[in-house]
Simulated scan of single mutants.
Amino acid sequence: MPLSPGTGASSSIDRPSVGGILDVCACGPDSFRGDSYTRARRVYGGQTLGQAMTAAGRTVHNDHRPHSLHGHFIHPGRSDVPVDYTVERIRDGETFSTRQVRGSQGDRIVLIATVSFQQAEHGLAHQDTTATPAPTPEALPRFEDSVSASDLGDARWLRRLLSTVGVEFRFPEEYPRLANRRGEPRPPVQRAWIRTCESLDDNPLTHAAGFAYCSDLFLLSAALPPHARHIDTPGMQLASLDHAVWLHAPFRADEWHLYEQHGYWMGNGRGISSGRLFDRDGILLASTMQEGLLRFR
């Protein structure tokens, strides 16, 4: 039996506005402020990634669009305090522009990121893989409508996720976390159709930052399924350490794309996961990588 609206359906939950999150305001020359939109104690990592990319993009020419972001999460961000972003103009070339962004709350550094921008150009092109065939997102139910109460167990984690992150997601296969909750190991792979919950404006920077926001969702947890553990396993300590995004072609973050994730290594209290984002035709649009802390206290 699916979750009822009273126990976790997204229609009964006030979802964060991704457009509002990404709309950082200028506070001075190369200085911006982003508000936090979450009921969680800590700021969702994708929020700072998306806001940092937006802040950096506000300082480059419109014909230079983001192609990569490399971020290090220094301290957990507080959700009741805005994040201030200071942009340093590292390089402005004919083809590439580079910015370093420091996100802070008071004297506490939350994120340090490097964002690179490139003017569009033509050249050699190929990709070595395409997406594994999957049912279309329209043929799949919303995750919160597809899971029985017995499989889900305690629904609080899902309500917390839905109220914290403005991303809609649908899984072509069983979400490995559900099997892990039953004590069953799974391969370190998972995939979901994802998009922002709301339509975004037409600015390409908004959609690049919108995917940066979405890209943090589930990624690190892909390393846990072989161990039959999940992020809410008692004693589990999970924290993102660094995160990278490479954008291969323009796309809209408010349209459905298939996000494949592979947690290919875990050890020494850390795990590493990679991600690939495909369109409906199997074209690779973006790649991600994340390392994080995964250990028992």
Rank of each mutant, 00 (worst) to 15 (best):
S274F: 11
P141M: 05
T54H: 00
F211R: 15
A134C: 13
G77D: 02
A244F: 09
S148H: 13
A223I: 08
P135W: 11
T38R: 05
Q190M: 15
N180I: 10
L124V: 15
P176Q: 12
L49P: 00
L247D: 00
P135F: 09
G20Y: 05
D281L: 12
P2N: 03
R89E: 13
R102G: 00
D92C: 04
R91P: 07
R42Q: 11
D145G: 05
C197T: 09
S215V: 08
L241M: 09
A249D: 10
A239N: 07
T54Y: 00
H64I: 05
V87P: 00
S4T: 11
E198A: 15
S104A: 13
N203P: 00
L284T: 02
Q261V: 11
E173S: 12
L238V: 15
N268D: 15
R181Q: 13
P2G: 01
A239L: 12
F171R: 02
G6L: 09
Y213I: 04
R252S: 04
D84Q: 14
A134N: 09
A149W: 01
I231P: 02
L294G: 02
S17P: 01
R270C: 10
D216Y: 11
S150N: 10
A208V: 10
A212H: 08
V24E: 08
L219P: 05
F251T: 05
R65T: 13
T129L: 15
S10A: 11
I112W: 02
G45A: 11
A212F: 09
V43S: 08
S4N: 03
S17T: 01
P185Y: 08
I283T: 14
C25V: 15
P135D: 12
S163H: 03
G210N: 03
S116D: 10
D279W: 11
S287T: 15
S17W: 00
R159W: 03
F171Q: 04
S79L: 06
G235Q: 06
E121Y: 03
P204T: 03
H75S: 13
D201T: 14
R170V: 00
F278T: 04
Y259R: 08
G106D: 06
A40S: 15
Q190R: 11
G153Q: 06
E138R: 14
T59M: 02
V115I: 14
L205I: 08
